[in-house]
Write a protein that binds this DNA or RNA. Structure first.
Length: 211
DNA sequence: CACCAGGCAAGTA
DNA sequence: TACTTGCATGGT
């Protein structure tokens, strides 16, 4: 299985090259973007983040100081804006109250960071792993809808497989390597967007044809 | 027009 | 436990 995962990785890397993820400039921006992109197109998230930058609110204190209704209006383009505004403020309040700042929050082992993230409203398994890997640089594999669709379609996991099961397959089958996990998930999303969308899949042109 | 996007949590039986 | 529903904008 591990060689199969490596083979797919090599094929994707050859086809697409490095993806330079996460598309955010700072760990804090990655943190916020991970919540804003839930079930939402990244282009919409970019508008929301641009609004936060323009309002000079893209920081722990900046977000905490905003009225929730105002924050909701700023992140409106990213959808579910009322929910996300409340959940972002819950997240940043937790970080401030419990750890003081982002560096201190991230300065703990992978499992305890994941568990703290998962205990917060609005942070599920994918968002927790995205933050741990792409903002904190921890060795954890991110599973998303594309991962499930692509790898079940290629019979490497069951259609009914859950998040944990899929994550375990990757982490058991690959060396514990942050740059590898980073690039692999990014390549899966790249492949998904171009060849494995829910509505218009282009399986004929897919780089994984024949693997 | 209908459907979907790098989810998650609360409600129902 | 196992489904279902609400949340919401912007692109195809």
């Amino acid at each position: 299985m591990s060689s199969r995962l490596q083979e797919i990785y090599d094929t994707l890397y050859t086809a697409f090259g490095p993806q330079h993820w996460w598309p955010g400039e700072t760990p804090f921006e990655v943190l916020i973007g991970a919540v804003l992109t839930q079930n939402t197109a990244w282009t919409n998230v970019e508008r929301a983040i641009a609004n936060l930058k323009a309002a000079d609110a893209l920081s722990l204190d900046g977000l905490a100081a905003l009225d929730t209704v105002i924050l909701a209006e700023l992140i409106r383009p990213s959808g579910y804006y009322n929910q996300k505004a409340a959940r972002l403020q819950g997240l940043i309040r937790y970080i401030t109250d419990t750890h003081g700042d982002l560096d201190a929050f991230f300065d703990q082992d992978t499992e305890s960071l994941r568990e703290e993230l998962l205990s917060l409203k609005g942070i599920g398994p994918e968002t927790a792993d995205s933050i741990a890997l792409y903002a904190a640089g921890k060795p954890t594999f991110v599973v998303d809808a594309y991962t499930h669709r692509i790898f079940s379609r290629h019979n490497l996991i069951a259609e009914e497989a859950g998040y944990h099961e899929i994550r375990e397959m990757f982490m058991d089958g690959l060396p514990e390597d942050v740059p590898l996990y980073n690039e692999y998930h990014a390549l899966i999303v790249r492949l998904g967007k171009e060849y494995c969308k829910k509505s218009k899949p282009r399986c004929e042109q897919c780089p994984l044809q024949g693997i």
